[in-house]
Design a binder for these strands. Structure first.
Length: 761
RNA sequence: GGGCCGGUGGUCUAGCGGCUAUGACGCCGCCCUUACGAGGCGGAGGUCGGGGGUUCGAGUCCCCCCCGGCCCA
């Protein structure tokens, strides 16, 4: 049934976006999933929730632009490709390596697209975007050229976080921390001009050649006497002893050696203390000539060697093994180094204040999720290094004049590959030389591409007319884990390009966890794949679970039990619809009976709750409200109550019509209310009973004239029903058996329906 | 170490100072038969994360701590 619906939607293009519609436009900045590896169920649910947003907006009267894109740039695919073919990127021809990456991406992409389609996601997957397409990359480069012209780009030589394995610099956001066992080596330093010794503990003995100072905490009385003195390292260098609060008296001996560079703190201390760095680690992760006899060794080798040497010479007091919080590469988990390199930077520090103002105008769902971004803005302290020494990414569109060496940029609008192409000019604008140009070999950080998604999707740089209608996207839906990267960078970049907030609405979701509450990771082996669940329960059941399981914004645990429960609810809905479909729907509204007014009042209540949930893009209330209404109220009480009347058993035609009319009215309302969450079954029913598609309908409205006193009485009817059923059971009677019962005075209006239902004499 | 969010029976959830703490899913009995492999009736299951305090009275307000998730240092 679901597959059948999906085919119909595709054939009739149900969700086609018409930019010239007279409805207000609403555009969604769909997260482009990364095309590597297989999707787990949490990702599938995330995208179906985003789909619910799109469907909600359609039913609220918007013309919704819901594009789809696939992220194909960057490290992960390079790593996967290296693994699959057992090759090393830098030892492989660049062109050829790119081809292998593309092959891998095409496969992964198809896997994702098939899941997206199976979920019934109403995005435009026919014309999907790819972040590595010429179209997208040309826009990335155009916005870079724009930023360059506006003075946001600069190149600087400074310490960078560097992954020796991936041979690239990393942004702060790409650094992870891992507790790793490390040896803490206690080294003896001599105090200059005396025979006294002090002991310094370090996890990085191989950086001893780069050691430029030793610090202690100003509150640490043990070392006050060292103030102003110098100490001699085991390698014979005399270096100053300084006070700095960074030194933790509890760690090691309380003395810390400062080297260029062991970690980010070293970088800061070198600056603060005015020390001259001595660089000993090269870009390939090996020590250089500054390391003296250790030159040419890798960091690991140098560490072993220096420990051995120093032990032999008696400089090692002792060695402890500790758990140390080590910065590692987010992708390959290799411990990171700090290496000074020349890199391009995009300014952001100067703009933080302007971005903070957006916190007041952009609406976050849930409201408190804005804290994620607010906190990050507070802690941004350096500009964004945007160049990378990798292959599979957008090239930096710069050539350098072979004569004067100055950078020259091409005009925006085209996709450039400077490492293999000639520039679109032959004379240097700086020196006039025609000596030719050297193409830039570096590429961009992939967030440079993804951070302009709301521009690319909406036509910026490739369809001006389209873009003029849409502007930047209206809503960004995404997970909370990438606020400081994707969300932050998008606001930054769009601000630089347009001078406006990228979005009006930002929707932040929690994470789907496994049954024990852990995130799904390959390494944990706890990944739940979606296909078996689709086959057993269908996409709607999975979607319903995704909506009804937890409030928006909080993490939720995946439970097959609950998905099964959702499936049962869908069955119930199906049968309710089947029952109602046997009755003809009366044309005009007949005069309604108390029972009818009661259920319509209940319906009002449910519509109110559901719509207020939809307004917040929170599907918890809508899903649960519909379920409770159908399952606990409408089916067991109202339908039972009016069954006889609907069939027309010994009642007049008007009363029968009232029941039939109400049944259909409620069904129509409920189907529309549930359509964003469970699009397949609702449309299937809608089409077979009423014709047309439910997905082009609007949400049902509250009709206040139905907020009557029967609403309250109806609750009593439900209690009375229970009482009758219980009494019959106690007396060992069958449900159909006639019974003598007194109907409470206040339920008189319902008397006729009640008598029929319970066969009351 | 800091920030944010959260912590109510196995799971999700109502509750926003006041009766013996909701409801759902799941579980266990019994019953029934239908628009429905569904339903009806009953049942087991909770120190409301812990400890203090405010109050006549606290999941509900305040403080401290613990745990989980995410992020940062």
């Amino acid at each position: 049934m679901e597959l059948e619906m999906q085919k119909v939607w595709e054939e009739e293009d149900t969700y086609r976006f018409n930019p010239d519609s007279d409805r207000p436009l609403f555009s969604i900045d769909t997260p482009p999933p990364y095309a590597s590896g297989k999707w787990h169920i949490a990702a599938a649910i995330h995208y179906s929730q985003i789909d619910m947003i799109a469907r909600t907006q359609r039913m609220r009267g918007y013309e919704v632009y819901f594009p789809f894109g696939v992220d194909r740039n960057g490290l992960p695919v390079e790593v996967e490709t290296e693994k699959r073919y057992e090759i090393k990127m830098f030892e492989y021809p660049r062109e050829e390596f790119l081809r292998l990456c593309r092959e891998f991406l095409d496969e992964a992409e198809q896997d994702i697209l098939s899941i997206v389609k199976r979920l019934g996601i109403s995005a435009d997957t026919k014309n999907y975007f790819q972040t590595d397409s010429e179209k997208w990359r040309a826009v990335t480069q155009a916005t870079f050229i724009d930023a360059w012209n506006k003075g946001y780009i600069y190149e600087d030589y400074r310490p960078n976080i560097y992954c020796p394995r991936c041979r690239t610099t990393l942004a702060d956001a790409e650094v992870e921390y891992k507790e790793l066992p490390t040896r803490l080596v206690y080294l003896k330093f001599k105090v200059e001009g005396s025979e006294e010794e002090v002991v310094v503990a370090t996890t990085r003995p191989e950086l001893l050649p780069a050691c430029k100072a030793v610090i202690y905490n100003p509150d640490d009385e043990r070392y006050k006497w060292l103030r102003g003195k110098r100490v001699v390292t085991p390698l014979g260098d005399a270096i100053p002893v300084m006070e700095h609060p960074y030194a933790d008296p509890e760690f090691g001996t309380g003395l810390v050696m400062i080297c260029s560079y062991g970690d980010k703190m070293d970088v800061q201390l070198f600056r603060e203390l005015g020390l001259e760095p001595k660089i000993v680690v090269n870009e390939d992760g090996a020590l250089n000539e500054n390391a003296g006899e250790y030159a040419g060794l890798t960091i690991q080798e140098a560490r072993e060697r220096i420990i051995r040497d120093l032990e032999r010479k008696g400089f090692v007091e002792r060695i402890e093994t500790i758990m140390h919080r080590t910065p590692v590469c987010w992708r390959c988990k290799t411990p990171l180094e700090i290496v000074p390199m020349r890199e391009y930077y995009l300014k952001q520090v100067d703009l933080i204040h302007e971005l903070e103002e957006y916190l007041d105008v952009v609406r976050f769902y849930p409201e408190w999720a804005s804290n994620y971004w607010r906190d990050w803005l507070k802690s941004v302290s350096s500009d964004w290094p945007i160049s990378r020494r990798r292959y599979y990414a957008t090239e930096i569109p710069v050539w350098y004049c072979k004569s004067c060496g100055k950078p020259v940029l091409p005009p925006p609008g085209k996709y450039y590959q400077p490492w293999k192409e000639d520039p679109p000019y032959d004379k240097c604008p700086h020196c006039g030389s025609t000596a030719g140009f050297e193409g830039e070999k570096r590429v961009f950080d992939t967030w440079m591409d993804s951070s302009i998604s709301p521009l690319v999707y909406n036509g910026f740089g490739w369809d001006d007319e389209f873009f003029s209608k849409l502007g930047s996207s209206d809503l960004r839906p995404q997970g909370k884990d990438i606020v400081r990267t994707w969300l932050h960078y998008t606001f930054l970049r769009v601000h630089q390009v347009l001078g406006k907030p990228a979005f009006k609405h930002v929707w932040i979701s929690g994470m789907g966890l496994d049954a024990k509450g852990r995130a799904m990771h390959k390494s944990l082996g706890n990944i739940i794949y979606p296909w078996p669940l689709f086959e057993k329960y269908g996409a709607d059941a999975v979607r319903f679970f995704g909506a009804a399981e937890a409030h928006h914004g909080s993490d939720f645990r995946i439970s097959e039990r609950k998905i099964e429960g959702a499936y049962k609810f869908l069955q119930k809905l199906w049968n309710v619809a089947r029952f109602i479909s046997q009755f003809e729907e009366p044309k005009g509204m007949p005069e309604l009976e108390p029972s009818d007014l009661w259920i319509l009042g209940e319906l009002n209540k449910s519509i109110r709750r559901a719509l207020s949930g939809y307004e917040r893009f929170d599907f918890f209330d809508p899903a649960n409200e519909v379920r409770i209404f159908i399952w606990d109220v409408f089916a067991p009480h109202y339908i039972e109550l009016v069954k006889g009347r609907a069939y027309g058993d010994c009642v007049d035609e008007g009363k029968s019509a009232a029941a039939r009319w109400t049944l259909h009215y409620v069904l129509r309302a409920v189907l529309r209310l549930a359509a964003p969450v469970i699009p397949h079954i609702t449309d299937y029913i809608w089409r077979s009973i009423y014709g047309g598609t439910v997905h082009r309908e609007l949400f049902p409205e509250v009709r206040e004239e139905w907020d009557t006193e029967y609403l309250e009485l109806g609750r009593k009817v439900m209690e009375f029903n229970s009482l009758v059923w219980k009494t019959k059971k106690e007396r060992g009677m069958r449900m159909k058996d006639p019974i003598e019962m007194k109907i409470p005075e206040d339920l008189k209006p319902f008397e006729e329906d009640l008598r029929k239902l319970h066969n009351i004499k």
